[in-house]
């Protein structure tokens, strides 16, 4: 670890650092490395200033996401929550797949951590394209950032378009019922919407990967909800935690719980008949199956966890 760490803008392959020679001057490789990083940074800034970059139809800006959005999340992921991923091999390396996870924690940090886990720990460094609530896209700034990070509105046309173009899509079917539930209901899965995600997976024939996240429930233990304030601001809830809003912004620092993200055995949807997505019974059954898998995994992970903060 050097004193001043410069965030690399592009992963460089096949670069080996030789051991530092005995004399005090930095090794030529190290100096070149530093200069190379400056050159990369300047090239990045030039591309941004002249608009010389690509975005896809959803507004996903890969360069911006990898260089600006993901790096600040890394310390949170590695040092604060010490996230451990289990079963990442269950996420296919290529082609469309639908990651379905439990939602909790007042703010959607669980979604951001899952996306970072898949990008950093998966061998093919996959980007998770999440399906968000319409509130996210109605908000100025946040909606724009979400689009640039590759996320889109939770609706069937978008989900199917992403899945059929071979993207990895993330969905949190509990929605606000999950993320905004009181602390006493922690790790109790809420209703899984109307199963729209299952019909999207059935139509495109991609596997569903159940994902269970333990630890996110404790980051902001929600002990109250100021409904009138929430209604005034147009939010689904206004959280009260032991520290927020009592200590102001300081109270908005998440508690450093220890996290586990487990990706379960994928549920294949390719073997069903073409019209299967229009069979409500099948959709309900598959939805229940996925929900049950996540709930059981949560219970198992919880029994294995000895301490909320130490793991």
């Amino acid at each position: 670890m050097t004193e001043a760490q410069i965030i690399p803008l592009r992963p460089r392959h096949g670069q080996h650092r030789t051991t530092t020679p005995i004399d005090s001057a930095p090794a030529p490789e190290e100096r070149d490395d530093w200069e190379q990083q400056l050159a990369d940074l300047l090239a990045f800034l030039r591309r941004r200033a002249t608009g010389d970059y690509e975005v896809d139809e959803f507004g996903f800006d890969r360069e911006l996401t990898e260089n600006l959005f993901l790096p600040p999340l890394r310390p949170l992921y590695q040092k604060w929550f010490r996230v451990e991923t289990i079963g990442i091999h269950n996420v296919p390396s290529e082609g469309g797949a639908l990651v379905v996870a439990n939602h909790s924690g007042t703010l959607p940090l669980d979604a951001l951590m899952t996306a970072l886990a898949l990008h950093d720990e998966h061998p093919s460094g996959r980007h998770l394209r999440m399906l968000g609530a319409d509130l996210v896209f109605r908000l100025p700034l946040i909606g724009t950032l979400a689009r640039k990070a590759g996320h889109t509105l939770a609706c069937n046309p978008d989900a199917e378009r992403l899945l059929s173009s071979g993207e990895l899509v993330g969905v949190w079917p509990e929605g606000f019922k999950g993320i905004g539930k009181p602390f006493r209901d922690r790790y109790k899965l809420q209703r899984f919407g109307r199963g729209g995600f299952v019909s999207a997976a059935l139509r495109t024939g991609v596997p569903i990967v159940p994902c269970s996240i333990v630890g996110a429930e404790e980051i902001y233990p929600m002990i109250g909800d100021i409904k009138p304030l929430a209604r005034l601001l147009g939010f689904p809830y206004f959280p009260v935690t032991p520290f927020f809003p009592l200590f102001g912004l300081l109270g908005a620092v998440p508690l450093p719980s220890k996290w586990y993200i487990e990706f379960g055995e994928p549920v294949s949807t390719a073997d069903y008949e073409p019209g299967a997505a229009d069979d409500p019974m099948l959709v309900f059954n598959l939805t229940d199956q996925v929900r049950e898998t996540i709930q059981q995994t949560l219970y198992r992970l919880l029994t294995q966890r000895r301490n909320t903060f130490l793991g």
């Binding site: 896209f137 109605r138 509105l153 609706c155 378009r161």
Partner: peptide, 12 residues
């Protein structure tokens, strides 16, 4: 609008 799908097809 903010509730638009990413791409419109003719029958939307």
């Amino acid at each position: 609008s903010s509730r638009d799908p990413a791409m419109f097809t003719e029958n939307m």
